[in-house]
């Protein structure tokens, strides 16, 4: 982490040396003079990239703040203790991608319990892994979409998107006939009777690229492609830098500027860690092909809601699936194919 001739601090992400460095500048010896490691040091003195830096900066504040709040609170009951215990563990947990199955289960349990402590309601969260021999793909029939936006509604409800800021992962673009796919001139926020004369409709969302540029640029590896092809985000690892948003050529990502809030009775309780769980403020969100549904064999909410059948979802590795038939028998294309991002989202016409 330390480089003698460097005068600035940089996060050495790619090649983190396996030395116990604490950031004080001393490679040898010790900076605080302690010889044995207590529990705190065991946690703090492990070289683990970016988090380590944040920990060092914030742990102090946290401990201070925690001490103040616990000493001042009149009712520091068992629940409060449990709450802060959960908060502590959640704060220092690792990257989901590197977690063992047990650790995944533990964090899911913590999040479930924490929700229960906060709201008194139970949620059903899983960390179900990708199925073997599954690669998800999506097809969109431009001739069929009528611009009703039923998919947008379904997506908002399914994925617990913030109601106040009207966060939406799906956009439907109204395009004029005869102008090609002109996104500059298209309208993605129309409100009049549809389909409008002389227009056609085209939906976009995250295309789950097989070679996703958004994943490459993430400085903390908070976003990655799963085995079944779904590009996911660990909301607890994301630092909200929005590099990925800038790297995505398809406007697939959405940054939340405020804590997503959903009226309690509207919260979708069937959740996945990498999917529709209630996120914190200041992280990246996007379509996850409804990972909480698709990994169970179910269709994403948008596919289910579409009344025209413009949306098809399925397993690209199953030669008998509808999506495969479309790819093999219709004239399909993808957006900005020349970029080499290999989106797994195809468009076709009747």
């Amino acid at each position: 982490m330390n480089n003698d001739n460097k005068k600035w601090y940089s996060l050495n992400l790619k090649k983190s040396p396996k030395v116990d460095s604490c950031g004080c500048g001393n490679d040898s010896g010790s900076c605080s003079g302690e010889k044995t490691k207590d529990g705190y040091d065991q946690v703090m003195n492990v070289s683990m990239g970016r988090r380590a830096a944040f920990k060092k900066i914030t742990a102090g504040f946290l401990i201070g703040a925690g001490a103040v709040s616990s000493s001042c609170s009149v009712v520091s009951g068992d629940e409060n203790k449990e709450k802060s215990g959960i908060e502590w563990e959640e704060y220092f947990k690792g990257n989901y991608k590197l977690m063992t199955d047990k650790e995944k289960e533990e964090t899911v349990n913590r999040l479930t319990r924490s929700y229960e402590l906060r709201t008194g309601e139970k949620i059903n969260m899983t960390s179900k892994d990708a199925e073997k021999d599954v690669l998800f793909g999506y097809a969109f029939n431009i001739s069929k979409c009528q611009g009703y936006m039923d998919c947008v509604n379904a997506c908002v409800e399914e994925n617990n998107q913030d109601r106040a800021t009207e966060m939406q992962y799906i956009r439907i673009h109204e395009m004029e006939d005869g102008k090609g796919f002109n996104f500059e001139e298209s309208d993605d926020n129309y409100y009049h009777e549809v389909p409008a004369e002389g227009h056609f409709y085209m939906g976009t969302q995250c295309f789950h690229c097989d070679n996703p540029p958004c994943v490459e640029v993430c400085p903390v590896q908070a976003t990655w492609k799963e085995k079944d092809g779904i590009v996911v985000i660990d909301y607890d690892w994301c630092v909200g830098c929005r590099y990925c948003m800038a790297a995505c050529p398809y406007d697939g990502r959405r940054f939340n500027w405020k804590t997503p809030e959903v009226p309690e009775q509207e919260v979708n309780k069937k959740q996945h860690y990498l999917g529709n769980r209630l996120r914190k403020k200041g992280v990246m969100e996007k379509c996850t092909f409804c990972i909480q549904r698709s990994r169970e064999g179910q269709n994403p909410a948008c596919v289910e809601a579409c009344p025209t059948g413009a949306r098809t979802f399925g397993n690209l590795l199953d030669p008998k699936s509808n999506i495969r038939w479309i790819l093999e028998n219709k004239k399909v294309f993808r957006l900005k194919e020349d970029l080499g991002t290999e989106p797994k989202f195809w468009y076709y016409m009747d």
Binding site: E296, S321, N329
Partner: peptide, 21 residues
């Protein structure tokens, strides 16, 4: 197109068995 799966709508899930409207 319907027989193949490019027209119409699959119900329930993407996984087999296929059930189409």
């Amino acid at each position: 197109d319907w027989k193949g799966g490019a027209h119409g709508k699959q119900l329930g899930g993407w996984a087999p068995p296929r059930l189409s409207n």
